[in-house]
Amino acid sequence: MINNKRHTGGNVEFSLGDLAERLGVELSGDPRRPIHGISGLGSSKPGTISFLAHSRYRHHLRGTRAAAVILTQEERQHCPVDALISATPYLCYARLTALFAPRFPAAEPIHPSAVVDPGASLGAGVRIGANAVVADGVILGEGVEIGAGSVVLQGSRIGASSRLMPNVTVYHDCVIGERALIHSGAVIGSDGFGFAPDGKEWVKIHQLGRVVIGNDVEIGANTCVDRGAIEDTLIGDGAKLDNLIQLAHNVKVGARTVMAGCVGIAGSVDIGEDCALGGGVGVAGHLSLPPGTTVMGMSLVSSSPPEPGVYAGGLPAAKRGEWQRNALRFRQLDGIAKRLNKLEKALEEGRT
């Protein structure tokens, strides 16, 4: 039988009034009402708090079992239970999750099976999990957590309050800023893909740069960030990378840029601040994306956009027969364009 109980790392409960104060929002209801979790509006549970991010989900309010709901002042009249009033309910919900997120502190600061080189420098409150390796010259800031099985190689630096989840690998001489969160399977600082042909085989170009990651960056599971060939690969403050992303050598990612899963960025691409790349986007090498650019999912960027905007590419899914006909017509476009040019030229000549 499946056990649906979640391990939260300890029972967490707040009063509704406490939550309103912590989130800086208006309370409408009983400040003493206990809240012990978060639930979705359509699957709400007693004693929890939910949120209404868009009016299209308003119909869920009528039958909600939640103790309270986060919503706007305009939606308050439709809510039959207590509420927290926010102009931005989804953002308020995001901040609320930090209060209920499970934490599993290690039973002891450094697990007996961890290997920590005497030449490493550990700040106050550092925790290192089972079978982790911290090499010579590594500097770990105050409150850093290194998950079980993670490896931090020679000379790398990790800023205060950053966390490596289990089985993260950080190659030599990389820099990770403060409050970073790097998920399992991520590899930071592996060699970029560089080879030169000598006519018979490919000669490896050793990658001499680093990876430098700013503050408040999150990197998803199994994402790879290659070190620079000569200069560094850079990720700016506040950037958020999803799972299974590939950043090639010398890529620059601007502050607060976000990327969804399976994005692939070729070498020496410069992505500006506040960009957003949907899932499966590919960006060809040596291009630039202006700050504030959005690229829709599954698009291929093969030239640098001239200005910020929303860009899209690729053929959407359709029934097989329709898709095959469209693909055939696409292959015929060049011939159609040439015939059209001839017709236009003949018409112009006929007028003269």
Score class of each variant (00 low, 15 high):
V175M: 07
N167A: 14
P166K: 10
V175W: 02
Y171P: 01
G238L: 05
G267C: 13
V251D: 03
G194C: 07
V168K: 04
V211E: 02
V212Q: 12
P197S: 14
V225M: 08
T233G: 10
S162M: 08
I146N: 02
E273G: 06
N167Y: 09
L181T: 14
S162L: 13
G228C: 10
G278C: 13
N243Q: 06
H172E: 15
A239W: 02
L153A: 07
T169E: 03
G177N: 08
D242K: 03
N243D: 13
G267K: 07
H172R: 14
F193D: 00
V170M: 03
T233Q: 12
G264H: 02
T223P: 09
V151P: 01
N215H: 15
P197F: 14
L208Y: 03
A221D: 07
G155I: 12
N243P: 05
A160H: 04
I188L: 08
A248E: 01
L164H: 00
V225Y: 05
A255K: 13
V175E: 13
A196S: 15
G264Y: 02
L164Y: 03
I271H: 06
D274S: 09
S190H: 08
I213W: 04
E218Q: 12
F193Q: 06
T223I: 08
G192E: 06
A260T: 11
A196C: 09
L241A: 11
I271Y: 08
K200Y: 09
G238Y: 09
D242C: 12
A221E: 09
H249C: 05
L277P: 04
S190F: 01
R163E: 06
L247A: 13
S156V: 02
V187Y: 04
G185R: 08
G155S: 09
Q246K: 13
G149A: 12
W202R: 11
V225K: 03
R179V: 07
R227E: 02
W202P: 04
D232N: 15
A229R: 05
V225P: 01
L208M: 15
K240N: 09
G264Q: 02
M165N: 07
E145M: 14
V175F: 06
G272C: 12
V151Y: 05
E231A: 15
V263C: 15
D232V: 12
G189Q: 01
D274V: 10
S162V: 10
C275V: 12
V168F: 06
I230C: 00
G147Q: 01
G280N: 11
R256N: 14
D173H: 15
G236T: 03
R179M: 09
D198I: 12
D198H: 13
V168H: 02
G238D: 11
G236Y: 01
V151C: 12
I219T: 05
G280E: 07
G220W: 03
N215L: 06
E273I: 00
V168Q: 04
S150P: 04
I146L: 05
V211N: 00
G267Q: 12
I245S: 03
E273Q: 15
G209L: 14
V258P: 00
I176R: 01
K240D: 10
K204S: 09
L208V: 03
C224E: 03
F193K: 02
G261I: 05
G228Y: 04
R179F: 07
